[in-house]
Amino acid sequence: MSIIVVDNVKLNGRDGKVILDGITFTVEEGDFLGVLGPSGAGKSSLFKLLNRLLSPTSGEIYYRGKNLKEYDPVKLRREIGYVWQKPYLFGQKVLEDLTYPFRLSQEKPDMELIYKYLAQANLKEEILAKKPTELSGGEAQRISLIRTLLVKPRVLLLDEVTSALDTENTRAILDLILREKEEKNLTVLAITHNLEAFNFKKVLYLNAGQVKYFGEGKI
């Protein structure tokens, strides 16, 4: 059974503008799917639909055979984790952002795990004491990714998580993502313009709200 099924999904903006125009595709558990397409194609909007921050105007989305609408939104969002294109950190200190997932699940923060992710993302522990405004774009991006990983989702939606990173850090983040994926058998959907580094085996290519290509191989 496919883990995600998107069936003829349409999404209109508040102004009635067509954002997604009849999208259909499926994702298998353990997939590493590239979501590609020009700016404004509707990639981020698709991820927001999967994370249920938006609801389709028409069409259906299924997760593990059950319609998204039938899930408790809170549980679903913890299963299908979304890393925003523009990292937004809300804590007074970075530490607060990284302990937030534990606060939500009412657990004691697992500092070992936080330190492990920081090290793998090439970040120093001192960053925890910084204010979000004191971070560089690339640092904020990595913290935002770690924050979603700490929710322990089964599906990861990565929206250009390496766009502000240099080659070396892109490599570190990709290694981190792929290691997590293997260890936990995650399903990963990633929007990126860096095809070379991501090296997808399967891609979904969107343009103007429509699927232009879906399948194996590279574009």
Binding site: N51, L53, P73, V74, K75, R77, R78, G81, Y82, W84, Y88, F90, Y100, P101, L104, R147, T148, V151
Partner: peptide, 15 residues
């Protein structure tokens, strides 16, 4: 944006 980011992490509305 702050509220939406928290929602996307699985925060209930009140949280």
């Amino acid at each position: 944006e702050e509220v939406e980011v928290k929602l996307s992490l699985g925060a209930p509305p009140r949280e």
